[in-house]
Design a binder for these strands. Structure first.
Lengths: 234, 234
DNA sequence: CTAGTCACTCGCACACTGTACGACAAACCC
DNA sequence: GGGTTTGTCGTACAGTGTGCGAGTGACTAG
């Protein structure tokens, strides 16, 4: 007996310093978070990994596939509480906050997520855990799905809009305060004869952008959950 | 008298066969609707208009600016009923349906709309009319803005998700039925040990995709509006 | 020890992108 | 008729995703 399977498998593991799909996905995630979709190119990604550009194509079929993988990774970051722990309503609230936080951490997501369906393992697992949560609430059959996707859609919608503003600020190269006051000034001129917009503008202009977004988010989510609660089977 | 001012101005009007910004925007809209963002290139657009590629840059500063213009055009297609006509609640319902229909007509929108803020004339006018509508409901000061953006976010969220599925089907080259049954089969395998997902799957599998989306949309919107209604000042 | 096979890397090339630049031309004003 | 404005467009540059085929190191069978 020259060598056991154990030593054999052990030796086969490192083999050669080599790229791995996980490595590539993680590097792509970093680039996306830092520079957005426009900042991600296969050549730059390869350079970051110290390899040739086309080497990536052995581990990943196309750039789009790579993005699919990164997207699924983000879904893995979302918490879905189990209904026993918190009850469905506060569970849904926590779920919403976790999903929103994830999207804000990955502001490139809205730009790519609507060009493909998400069927990766993390996405489906999220869906499954979501269904458990909303299933426990006691909705009628099909309302379980409707309830869950309502909440997800609402959260995506609000977070996406928030992301749009954030990227705009970042691209402008200004501070948030500068940008806000610029936009407000611009708006003031544009709507000189629009009393309704002026009122809204006055309401917004003294408030911090981030806290306003937070308040708006929980306001709408509360409303939606209120509405959902009345649909629960008595 | 050889020619009056009338004939002169008449002659001066066309001046020379020339591109116009409106023409370009409209052609870009057509291409986007038909082929999506990936199908729009300045060269192809110019060819469609029978002009040189770089000629477009006299009328439009960059491709991104052009897309901004097209986006604003789409906002112009959204109906916002006046509150006197329908009351705020059914007005909001109509608004939601109109916005959703607009997004479904322009499935490329989600892909580009979250990388920039929308401050064009049609976008701001939509915002203004929206504020009139929700302002008439009788919300407390800041809740007017919150209510409106909740509804918009929800509608965007649902419509975007719908768009994602539609594009996926289109890209697959299959019919909707083929695609659905393929995905269901794929899902069935993936979730062999997940009873919650299986229940959901069984619920979905017999239903037409489009009507399911419609039902889900009005279900969630109704819930949200129910919740909003309880926030109206008494 | 050699020959062969697999797993993986990578340089080159192709077609295509957005757009800066500067030369051109047609219409207008004086 | 000269000059200015308005508009067009060919060329060029730097960059993109990725197909192809040659190359290389590690392992296995004989």
């Amino acid at each position: 007996m020259k060598e056991s399977i154990w030593t054999r498998t052990r030796a086969a593991a490192p083999a050669r310093e080599t790229l791995s799909r996980e490595q590539i996905v993680q590097a792509a995630m970093e680039t996306l978070d830092a520079e957005g979709v426009a900042g991600l190119s296969m050549r730059k990604l390869a350079a970051k990994l110290g390899s040739g550009a086309t080497s990536l194509y052995w581990h990943v079929q196309t750039k789009d596939d790579l993005i699919d993988l990164v997207i699924d990774e983000t879904y893995g970051e979302v918490d879905v509480p189990e209904p026993e722990l918190a009850g469905w309503r506060s569970g849904a609230m926590l779920f919403g906050h976790s999903l929103r936080a994830m999207i804000l951490r990955h502001p490139w997501l809205p730009e790519v997520v609507y060009t493909r369906p998400s069927l990766g393992p993390n996405a489906t697992s999220l869906g499954s855990r979501g269904l458990v949560l909303f299933g426990a609430a006691g909705f009628a059959e099909r309302d379980v799905d409707f309830a869950m996707s309502s909440v997800m859609s609402y959260v995506f919608g609000t977070a996406n809009a928030e992301v749009a503003i954030r990227t705009a600020i970042q691209n402008s190269g200004q501070t948030t305060e500068e940008w806000v006051s610029d936009v407000l000034e611009q708006a003031r001129v544009a709507i000189a004869d629009d009393t309704e917009m002026q009122k809204s503008l006055r309401r917004r202009s003294n408030r911090d952008l981030a806290t306003m977004h937070n308040e708006a988010f929980v306001f709408g989510l509360d409303c939606l959950l209120d509405g959902l609660e009345t649909r629960v089977k008595k």
